[in-house]
Design a binder for these strands. Structure first.
Lengths: 351, 351
DNA sequence: ATCAAGCATGTTATCGGTATCATTACAAGT
DNA sequence: ACTTGTAATGATACCGATAACATGCTTGAT
């Protein structure tokens, strides 16, 4: 570590420029308030001292940190990374900095993170998911800052929401497989009794199951095994379980493309033809789903857009809240899209 | 946004508990300094008021923010996301919060981000890459905090470094292709004259080229086209350029698996057999490289480990620097590994 | 000439913690 | 009995900025 000369403060700058601290502050925050000549003098002093303002002090004084907390299950899922990037992108022009935390799909971890984050006094909270622990809910409410729940459509939103209906995604998947003429239909998801659970994946399964029931079909083939986050192995494993239970299964929906890819590979290994012997679909439209052979039928969501829309919403809300108006809670539904590709095909023998 | 009751401060807690602010502070920072009875009283008051300490104020006073700045090219590349996650994981037990910024592979953007980040007074900086603008270098030096350059091995490190030699990666790739008996060898990279450039990719190309030269081969087939970050399209595009220039090319190294996958798909489309007609290899050991058919020969780096090792290093350094000792600059080389898979095979007709 | 309005700048009082030193009380050593 | 040490707590002074109000000086309308 290089030796550090003590950092210059605003006071040092003001002395060198022969003005008061406030004038320096104004030059930085709102240059138009200062006459050109003094402004130049101050700028020169800043340059000379290579002064970097201290936002910690600034935040304490102004009671605005320009931090936005973003709480996601993981960064390692490209969809969530896209959302983070979209959000950061949208907030950057207004000089907001993201404080990213990830929960590993654990609600208790989410609570811990929210507690820790609130101590940093963020100006807003963005959190993936609509289910939180009681304590987490209370903390967020009490924080008195805008909250945006993303990646699902909450029934009882805390405040704002930007996402899509995972339940409807599940229904769309089931309807697609039904429309192809399949009757023995299964699904692959993760366990819900462990501490790391994918609540949004479970919503998709719930929607999926609801359609099966409405069609008078059994939901026995909806497999829940392994912990979130799902992996290629998860897909291979759960497909194995499914086949053991019901070798005659015709169509499968995996809660994630990652699982779907793993399942597809397992089919290759077992000599099961996809499609033909088995129709397979996933969720998320990951790159890998597009590049697989055959390319996987999936449901596309625009993860980056979720982030961007959230950012735009927050900019509005934060602007208004500084003007002391109360912004109405908004609920944005960004929708989704079924992308039919090579792994789903009509049932071989129509009833 | 819910209505906010004014947040409780440490002073409120101290009054309710009938002690001084300092005692409350001690209960939070070092409970053993306080007698059990008062500690309990204070804890109860904290609970009652649902007091959340203000770390902004704490940081200003103690001159430690417990922020670590991490500057990466993008979060959308799973390798960098892994590094971020590894770093966060390692720092979490010591209650450090990551401040993530991404440069989009632009040095000017990196400089801008560094300037903005320094205003947050981080306790350390982690930055991907070893090349920075002059101003960025100076700012980092002057900051007087530990700096870790990651994802490469700097010749002139600013301070610490954790990474691997991209140059040697390129050499290993070329040696592998040479050893297979190939002579007409090309490579796919991105342009270096645009504002977004992949400097580490370029190092790999440089290493690759050095081996070609030593073997008396031409480096004409090293293609640089398109902007960083590379994409599937980039791979397809640059392979097209290469084939136009040299239809008889036998082996190709792509600076990234992403490019390699794109190139592989392009080969499929053109009816070029991989391997056989063409040996192809990539870099990064992305999931998709493993799942492709055939699976892509690549060079594996442990991105998550880079993050974790960086975190461990920082914990040591930060601990020591608070004890006023000067930690020696460390340079950790995490190495890499050639993973031979299905896309590279011995040359058809040995010379 | 007079005065309100407005621009440019300065003064003062926090923001909510922690560092540092001071104080008190009581136990133990001589 | 008297010093000395230690454990528990308090008092005071910042940390480095900004908010809010105050001041002085122009300028232009009347």
């Amino acid at each position: 570590m290089p030796p550090s000369s003590p950092k210059a403060t605003m006071h040092d700058v003001s002395r060198l420029a022969g003005v008061s601290k406030m004038t320096v502050s104004r030059v930085l925050a709102d240059p138009d308030l200062v006459s050109e000549s003094t402004r130049n003098r101050v700028m020169k002093a800043i340059e000379q001292l290579s002064y970097v303002p201290d936002r910690v002090a600034g935040s304490l004084s102004s009671r605005r940190t320009n931090f936005i907390t973003a709480i996601l299950p993981t960064l390692t899922n490209s969809n969530f990374a896209d959302t983070a990037q979209g959000l950061a992108e949208a907030m950057r022009p207004a000089d907001y900095q993201l404080l990213i935390g990830y929960t590993m799909y654990r609600l208790e971890e989410e609570e811990r993170i929210i507690r820790a984050m609130l101590a940093r006094r963020p100006d807003a909270i963005v959190v993936a998911g609509t289910t939180h622990t009681k304590a987490a809910n209370e903390m967020m409410l009490r924080a008195g800052i805008p909250i945006v729940e993303i990646w699902d459509t909450p029934e009882h939103p805390i405040d704002h929401a930007v996402g899509f209906s995972n339940y409807e995604v599940g229904r769309a998947a089931a309807l697609h497989l039904l429309a192809l003429g399949h009757r023995r239909i299964g699904a692959l998801g993760s366990r819900m009794d462990s501490d790391a659970k994918d609540l949004r994946g479970e919503s998709r399964l719930a929607g999926f199951t609801s359609v099966l029931r409405e069609a008078g079909l059994s939901d026995e083939l909806v497999i829940r095994a392994g912990q979130a986050p799902v992996s290629y192995d998860h897909g291979a494993l759960t497909l194995g379980i499914l086949l053991e239970q019901a070798p005659e299964v015709e169509a499968v929906f995996a809660v994630s493309d990652i699982s779907a890819v793993g399942a597809l590979m397992e089919c290759h290994r077992r000599g099961i033809k996809v499609p033909g012997d088995l129709s397979l679909m996933g969720f998320g439209d990951f790159d890998i789903a597009r590049q697989c052979v055959p390319a996987i039928t999936t449901i596309r969501i625009d993860a980056e857009q979720i982030g961007r829309r959230t950012g735009e919403l927050l900019l509005q809300v934060l602007d208004r809240s500084s003007a002391r108006e109360c912004a109405p809670a908004a609920a944005v539904n960004v929708g989704f899209e079924l992308v039919t590709r090579g792994t789903t095909a009509p049932a071989a023998k129509p009833r």
